[in-house]
Amino acid sequence: MDILQFEFMQNALIASLIVSLICGIIGTLIVINRMVFIAGGIAHGSYGGIGLALYFGIAPMLGASLFALFLGLIIATITHKNSTRLDSLIGVLWAFGMALGIIMSDLTPGYNVDLMSYLFGAILSVSHEDMFGMSAVLVLVLLFSVVFYKQLLAMSFDAQFAKLRGVNVTLLYFALVALVALGVVIIIRAVGLILVIALLTIPPYIAEKLTHSMAAMMALASLLSALFCSVGLWISYAFDVSSGASIILVATSTFFIQFCSTKLFK
């Protein structure tokens, strides 16, 4: 395995394992709560945070995280008000964030961070600080999903029933959206903004069909995600192609194979 002799490869592999665990857990909650579009809106809109961070000279990922949390808060409030126009409003926030990001980085004098690395990810250049941030989010996600497992399961399955059984559904939903926002920003580091939705939805989607509990779905989704990431990284190294796009091609190919085989054998 000469591929592992490079430090950046080791880092990329460790980072992708952390990201996979976050993906498996958060992705499962996103898929069973039908929040894919919300996650997409937050992911794209968070580019506004990058632009603001550049302009005001703070760390881009910190800016993106804060801005993603802000967007998540707005979206959760709209969902809570039970608006039938939620999808349109997310679309507006989606576009607003991206436009704001581009304008702010235009206004920033001097060198601008490579937009491509934000769009398609830069897992081969993750730093130790990045990995520290990823681990922190992972710990948060693990704690949240273990401590509130019962409540999360009940809310995802039947929010009204959960509410009547004394679960604070509103607070739990806000917390979930906040974690989705943080998770999304972290995963952007690995596979980029454009492809984040694929990594958040494909492993849980495959896992959902094969498991009998939410915990098992989270575990299998994490495992699949780790598999996609490592195979993708190897392809990216072996053929000298983009890492983020390789990971997603592995994931989507698996998805198509699984999709076609279940349709064929039905």
Partner: peptide, 25 residues
């Protein structure tokens, strides 16, 4: 409360016993 049988997500990974356990929340 027993809602209408509108299982919006057909593939929700949950076993019968786990559904009943929600009543114990």
């Amino acid at each position: 409360y027993v809602p209408q049988d509108t299982l919006a997500n057909k593939d929700f990974p949950i076993k019968v016993l786990d559904v009943v356990l929600m009543g114990r929340l």
